[in-house]
Design a binder for these strands. Structure first.
Lengths: 232, 232
DNA sequence: GTCTATACCGTGATAGAC
DNA sequence: GTCTATCACGGTATAGAC
């Protein structure tokens, strides 16, 4: 008796279409790719993507969703672990940032080219007014949990400052995921965008320090306010 | 004789096409827009864009170039001014970052909707593997000067770290320029992406502190190295 | 249920006549 | 500068093969 796979023995065609579409959408965006290019790359008939996904838009959604769920699960799990590790009753800042970044780093440095393509697609989606709502609807629930976790680690920072800081982190992450190679040329070879490990190590360190700085400047302005109160 | 207006003379055919194309490309990208949509929006014949710009690609280049030159001049000038203001023989960090960001902030909060559209277009271009080379060829000369200026302000930070930090700043800036509104929803209304002043004020403060943090951690590792040397 | 062949018909960029 | 024709290519529907 043949061992049954846990996950549905999906027909080869469907996955091949998703993979081909993922690679092409990541490279040229939704409008820059035709159904014919996708089916040709997947080695299937032009009509097959429509058979499975109903429309080009449906295929795009399918591509985006497939790995969004996996990624969300991994990041959510990593966040839980980070929150479980507390020092003096608070979760550790660096651990939270690591939980936020590491699953993406792993995706981007994965041997599976599909994951690397997916990262570039997410970057494209997140930068476009047309598609950014897909980010909101698939990722923002988890992002809110991250921001709440940051708040636990940095209770003196105001939520507004924390959200802006998250926005900056999100931008840095997005550009890193886009992997356009611009930094390679700019830095004259000092930085290699294909070396995701290095990029994410720098990002983690940079942002951990920057969030700490946020706490310090909050402390400063709180002191100022307090001393004003004392004077009055 | 009719008095000549100082402020924008009603754009003639060529400019109207650039304006229309700019708005549409910013919204939907190169492939998401048709020449018919552009000419309809500009109120000109379908053939006119081709007459002026040779091709759709030529039009795209024209849109990108028109304001790139103006922006480069403004930022270059701002950087010169920042470099002229030195404290103890070094340019001031915050001044350099301000010079880098302010012209873009002004563009994004301009009354001229064309500038606002242009910012979104640049964000799209910078996030796409297909177009990012346009960033390199039009902006990287100036960016190199900025990184050199940062190095003057922070002589102890290694160039590689400085380039990575620039990369992160560039990502934050890009996402801010993209102005997708995602942060508005996420923050539950605490942050308003259409309030460019606020966004850039936070960005300037955040990155100034983060770059200072970079210098401190360099100092730390230098000390460590030095103490290792001493031990040996 | 999975997949192919083909047809449909609107729209694309652009060239050439005016 | 403008109008119009061209013709390849776009997404997708359908018929039917395995």
């Amino acid at each position: 008796m043949t061992a049954k796979r846990a996950s549905p023995p999906a027909p080869a065609g469907r996955e091949k279409i998703l993979d081909a579409a993922e690679a092409l959408f990541a490279e040229r965006g939704f409008f820059g790719v035709t159904m014919r290019q996708i089916s040709e790359r997947a080695g299937v008939d032009v009509a097959l993507p429509n058979y499975y996904f109903g429309s080009k838009q449906g295929l795009f959604d399918g591509v985006f969703l497939r790995r969004a769920e996996i990624l969300n699960a991994r990041r959510s799990e990593a966040l839980e672990r980070a929150l479980a590790t507390t020092a003096d009753g608070r979760p550790e800042l660096a651990g939270i940032i690591d939980a936020f970044l590491r699953p993406i780093r792993d995706a981007q440095s994965s041997a599976d080219v599909g994951w690397r393509n997916y990262c570039r697609l997410v970057a494209l989606v997140n930068s476009s007014p047309v598609w950014a709502r897909m980010m909101t609807s698939h990722f923002d629930a988890l992002v809110s949990k991250f921001v709440s976790a940051l708040r636990l680690a940095l209770p003196d920072v105001e939520m507004k400052d924390l959200y802006w800081a998250y926005h900056f982190l999100s931008g840095s992450l997005t550009l890193t995921m886009a992997d356009t190679g611009r930094i390679d040329a700019l830095s004259g070879g000092l930085c290699h965008s294909e070396n995701a490990r290095d990029a994410y190590a720098h990002m983690k360190e940079f942002y951990t320090a920057a969030f700490v700085g946020l706490a310090k400047s909050s402390a400063r302005s709180a002191t100022k306010k307090a001393s004003r109160r004392t004077k009055a």
